[in-house]
Amino acid sequence: MPLRDWALALLANTAWAFNFVAGKEGSAQFEPLMFTALRFSVVLLLLFPFLKIIPGQMSTIIKIGALLGVGHFSLIFLGINMAGGVGGVAIATQLYVPFATLMAWLWLGEFMTVQRWMGTFLAFAGVVLVGFDPEVLKYWQALLLVSIAGLFMAVATIWMKRLQGVGIWQLQAWIAAVATPCLWTLSLLFEHHQLQLLTSAHWWQWAAPVYSALGATLTGHAIVYYLVQRYPVSLTTPLLMISPIMAIFIGILLYGEEPGWKLWVGAAMTLSGIGVIHARLRGRRRPPRPS
C-alpha cells in the first residue's frame, strides 16, 4: 500500500475517533435519532449536485443507504448516548472487522492467508482486551446496539465492493438521500420536543452534527470507499482499527476515563496485528465457487 493511502487511512481513523466525541455531545443535545438526521441533512445539502441516477447500480446503492445510513448510524449514536464514555463504544464498533473479513471470504472469494487470519485475530483480540473492563460492561445494552451496527457496516462494505462506476461523492449523496427522510421520520415517531431542542441549541452544539457530516462522512467514509475499491476488504478493514485506540485516549483527556493495563497491552496487540497483516502481503483471490 503506498504511503499516500496509509496517510488517508490515518486521516479516516482520526476523523472517526473525534466523531465519537461529536456523537456523544450531539446526541445529548438533540437526541440520537435527530442528531443522526441532522448529520445526513448536512451531507445531503452539500452533496446534492452529485445526486444523479446511476443505471444498473441503484438497487445496491439504496440498500447501502438503508443499511449504513439508517441502520448503522442510528444504532451507533443510540449506543453512544446510552454509554458512560466513548471508549467502550469505540471498541464495540470494531466488531465489523471480523464480520467483514468473513463475509469477504465467503461472498467475494477473497483469498485469506494464514498470516492475514493471524493478524486480524491479533488486532481484534487487542481491541477486545482494551474493552474488557467492568465499567464498560455496565452499559451492555449500548454494546449490543453498537455490535449490531458493526454487522450492518460489514454487509454495507461488501456491497460497496460490488459497485462499479459509482463515484465517492455520488455514493455519499445517495446514502444521505436515503437516510435523511427515514431518520427524520424515526425521530418524529420515537423522540420528542424536536423544535425546542433545535431552537435552544448554541452554536457550539450545532458544531457536533456539522463535524460528524464533514469529518466522519465526507472524510472518513469517503476514504473507506476509496480504499475498499482498490484493496481487499480483509486487508483494509483491520487498518481502520486504530480509531478505537485513538478514541480511548480522547476519552481519557475529555471525560476522565481511567483505563488500566488492558489499554496498553491491547493497543500493542492491535497495532502489531495490523503490522502483521500488511507485511509483505500480495493480493490474491480464491478461485470462485461453482454456481
Rank of each mutant, 00 (worst) to 15 (best):
S272Q: 09
L214R: 02
G220T: 08
T36F: 01
T93R: 06
I248V: 14
A7W: 13
G256Y: 04
T219E: 02
A142E: 08
I64M: 06
M1D: 04
I158P: 01
L78N: 09
D5C: 08
V114I: 14
Q194Y: 10
R285P: 00
L235N: 00
R284I: 01
V127T: 00
E258A: 11
M82W: 11
F124N: 08
L197I: 10
V128M: 13
K24M: 04
V210L: 12
T101Q: 06
G273N: 01
V70H: 08
Q172N: 15
S59I: 00
L3C: 02
V210Y: 03
I223G: 04
G26S: 07
P2Q: 08
A22F: 03
F124A: 08
F35H: 10
K138A: 03
T36K: 01
I62S: 13
G71C: 10
V265T: 07
V136Q: 10
A207T: 14
P2N: 10
T36W: 00
W169K: 14
S272R: 09
Q194L: 15
M246Q: 15
L137G: 07
H193F: 07
Q229E: 09
P98F: 12
A100P: 02
I76P: 00
V224N: 14
P181Q: 03
F50R: 11
G131E: 06
R284H: 11
I54R: 15
V166A: 07
I64S: 07
T237C: 14
G275P: 06
I223Y: 02
G256D: 10
E25W: 05
V210I: 14
Q172T: 06
H192V: 14
R280W: 11
L143M: 11
Q94G: 03
S147R: 00
G69T: 04
G215W: 01
L10M: 15
I54Q: 15
W184R: 09
I245F: 05
G88I: 05
F190I: 12
L214S: 01
R4H: 13
M82V: 11
A176Y: 01
V136P: 02
G165P: 06
I148G: 04
R285K: 14
L10Y: 14
G275H: 02
M246E: 14
V276G: 07
A201W: 02
K24V: 09
I80N: 06
L51A: 04
A90Y: 02
T157N: 09
I274M: 10
G131C: 08
W140D: 15
I223N: 01
L8P: 01
L67W: 03
L214I: 04
